[in-house]
């Protein structure tokens, strides 16, 4: 296959970026999208041109590192998949593909296609946990969790923290990410003791990081590589409202 690429190149966070065109002639349809970038970088390096910087690690769709905005969609045209799981058979010979980084104020560009997503870590640090020290747990089977609840918690916990939800949202809202964690811990008995403070703190941190407001268009869930459901946003809104109405912390 022949592929024309328009790739966002930006030296660092202090300089302006632009789209640069590249042409690849020998693309196999069995290649992954990132392997195509490896081939591009190999040829750029041999020519003495700076290779394209992009985030990637496990290349099997679970670490959440890869983050390319492909033809106007986070992680590209395939649904329920990350960039690293996208293969060139999803494209046609002669296609032009535009590749950009995640765009959001809370995710500043580091270089080329790589952005800084540490805001997500700070949101989890603000309350995305159950406060239990090592060694103080009781026997695992003393906590009964009906299978349906466990499954629902697992659905929420499947979030890989890639940021596609933010990139997909016209407001760059992080509601799907935040709600997935709030929801997972809100429906499990282990998360009950702290459920009010958790929702309050995580929402406050999300706002402080500069993510936009949620207008419930659902784009985040559609583009989420793990298909995290919008139900979690609804649950988080209930949690947050309930907390605000009854808590002393506000």
């Amino acid at each position: 296959m022949k592929i024309n690429l328009k790739v966002w190149r930006q030296k660092n966070s202090n300089t302006e970026g632009k789209l640069v065109e590249y042409h690849l002639d020998n693309v196999s349809e069995d290649m992954s999208f990132l392997e195509m970038f490896d081939v591009l970088n190999d040829s750029l390096t041999r020519k003495g041109e700076d290779p394209v910087t992009f985030d990637h690690d496990c290349r099997e769709g679970i670490c959440g590192t890869c983050s390319m905005y492909i033809n106007g969609r986070p992680h590209g045209p395939q649904t329920g998949a990350t960039t690293c799981q996208l293969h060139m058979r999803s494209f046609n010979d002669g296609d032009t593909i535009v590749v950009e980084p995640w765009r959001a104020r809370a995710f500043p560009v580091i270089k080329d296609l790589m952005v800084d997503r540490s805001a997500f870590d700070r949101i989890i640090q603000s309350g995305g946990y159950v406060s239990v020290n090592t060694g103080s747990a009781r026997d695992a089977n003393e906590i009964l969790i009906p299978r349906t609840i466990a499954d629902e918690a697992m659905d929420a916990a499947a979030c890989i923290g890639c940021g596609a939800c933010v990139a997909a949202c016209k407001n760059a809202s992080a509601m799907l990410f935040v709600s997935a964690k709030v929801s997972q811990l809100a429906i499990l008995p282990q998360g009950q003791a702290e459920h009010k403070e958790r929702a309050e703190r995580m929402v406050a941190q999300m706002d402080a990081e500069g993510f936009g407001a949620c207008s419930f268009t659902g784009a985040c869930s559609v583009e989420c590589p793990k298909s995290i459901s919008l139900d979690h946003i609804a649950r988080m809104n209930r949690e947050y409202l309930g907390a605000k109405l009854t808590s002393d912390n506000a």
Binding site: Y129, V130, V132, T134, G135, S136, A137, R138, D139, A140, N141, I143, L144, I145, P146, R147, A150, D151, A153, M154, A157, Q184, L185, L188, Q190, G191
Partner: peptide, 19 residues
């Protein structure tokens, strides 16, 4: 296993709620 369950790790469950 006890520690992870206490943290909220959603291990697979049987219908009765046991692991």
């Amino acid at each position: 296993i006890d520690q992870c369950v206490a943290q909220g790790v959603p291990f697979a469950r049987e219908y009765g709620g046991l692991l």
